[in-house]
Amino acid sequence: MRTDAIARNSGPDAAAAQAAAVIARPVLDVDDALRDQRAPRDQRAGQGRGRPSPWRKVVLYGLLSVLAIPFVFPTWWMITSSFKPISQIFAFPPELWPSNPTLDGYVGAFTAQPFALQYFNSMYIAIVVTVGTMLFASMAGYAFARIRFRGQGILFLVVLTGLLIPAEVTIVPLFQMFNSWGMIDTHWPLILVSTFGAPSVLATFIMRQYFITLPVELEEAARIDGLGRWRIYWSIALPLSRSALAAVAIFTFLHVWNLYLEPTVYLQTPELFTLPQALTRYTDAYGGEMWNVQLAAATLTALPVLIVFVFAQKQFVEGLAQTGLKG
């Protein structure tokens, strides 16, 4: 397995890599898992217990359906309740389908707060950070994997400390630093810390692990053709690493999309809020509740990503299969 290769290294590099492997593992294995799903049947001999009997199948479906309730019901309830008038949301018995559907909640979502702007904020921050992370993490990952330079091991170790220090630990000094730079109540702290700080280290690690596996011959051929490092990285290594980049992109996007502590600390103006922060601020002028509005906004926040996931899951898996980098 991947970690063995790391273990065979010696020196600080190996120790650091081992530390990082702990945290990097889920992402890498998600690709593995997803790819395995697409592997030809005969290669999956190890899985399962063969074909279960029809009776066992019924039990299995029943069990899975019951287990699926807490995973499906909240989303279902969120979507349906967002179309209910506020007085119906806590009606008893609970309605599984709105009897008097209304769009009041959706109208309210956009009038009570600058929701469209907040949506844009979340979206552009997530995209900027995702693209930035893909670029800088792949550059760093490439250099750590393919270029030899003095102090490489130590420098890599320094970078990996980012994995060991949760962002929550450094939130107070970061607040004071951005304060001294006049960046409080701007998007800069969210963009800069997410792109260059601790959250991006995982991406660098994933990219490094990926670039290590590329065959050396590709680069040699490129160099004979007179390509510089940047061209080799940009035109050869990067296109080959699509599946790793996809994993980095998905995880970075979800991470930034979900940030809550950081925007709560750094942002104060509703026009600058991100979605998670905005969702918790749906109260009327005097702190009264606006449940239907809040649920409508939550639905608008959750649904697009969910839909993209359902489709992208397939794309992602197929993308992995096409790279021809099966173990």
Partner: peptide, 21 residues
């Protein structure tokens, strides 16, 4: 006139003061 949410109004103003804004 900058409306801040009532529920954590004081905390937000204090944080603005702490944040140099």
């Amino acid at each position: 006139f900058d409306p801040l949410p009532f529920e954590d109004y004081t905390s937000t103003v204090t944080t603005q003061i702490a944040g140099g804004s």
